[in-house]
Design a protein around this nucleic acid. Structure first.
Lengths: 113, 113
DNA sequence: GAGGACTACCTAGAGACTCTAGGTAGTCCG
DNA sequence: CGGACTACCTAGAGTCTCTAGGTAGTCCTC
């Protein structure tokens, strides 16, 4: 009673954003690289289309979780927008990791037993 | 080249539907019970509002993954609509479990390392 | 030198899902 | 009578993912 468990939205709402934060927690990366790295790191299990990633990056930047800056690579090649975590982003990543752990355990207990 | 990995939509699109299938893989249940059982089984980590569960049940039934039937409990109490997995539902649950395993491993490799 | 593949970015719009915030209707308790 | 509980339901807003493109330059191959 009065527990008032704040629950709120469960993980899975923007689950992919957490994966992007996870990658950016390692080092700066640019959008195109994130797509490739996600595919490589997960052996192809997670393969987000660019149309999913670029908007997600803009949302994350808009929300102040990541910061981006343009980098000219060569006069010939396309420039890249590199992103890194902000302080808020690091906090969100830590929270997200905890949520993921909880959710994973919970889902396992429903799907396995 | 020609790899053409069919990828398709990742898990997380309708992730909660899989949890419902997981519960129904154990035994017949009705909507209100599913909400409570999900909360109980997961120690409150997953606490779906009824407004999420009832529409999900109707989608699953519409898609032929579960079948429902009304049961009168007592002349006084509200009747319940019990659901059980269909053959297609069992197959979907098996596929979903495999997807979940892949996704879980993949997400861990992004979030941990 | 045309076609294709690759690096990088971008957008619009459709579709699907989750959540909020209710409502119905009866029971039981204080 | 107010509140809590069992069970069901819906409408609408909001958010996200995906499809399906487009831009623009480089490089390789036939």
């Amino acid at each position: 009673m009065s527990e008032e468990h704040e629950s709120g939205p469960q993980l899975s709402r923007g689950e992919f954003a957490l994966l992007i934060l996870g990658l950016l927690g390692r080092r700066e990366m640019y959008g195109y690289e994130i797509v490739a790295e996600l595919r490589r790191t997960t052996d192809g299990a997670i393969d987000l289309p660019e149309g999913t990633v670029y908007p997600a990056l803009r949302r994350l930047e808009r929300d102040g979780l990541i910061g981006g800056h343009w980098v000219e690579v060569a006069s010939t090649a396309p420039r890249r927008r590199y992103y890194r975590l902000t302080t808020d982003g690091e906090r969100a990543l830590a929270d997200g990791r905890a949520d993921w752990l909880r959710f994973k355990t919970a889902a396992d207990s429903v799907l396995d037993a």
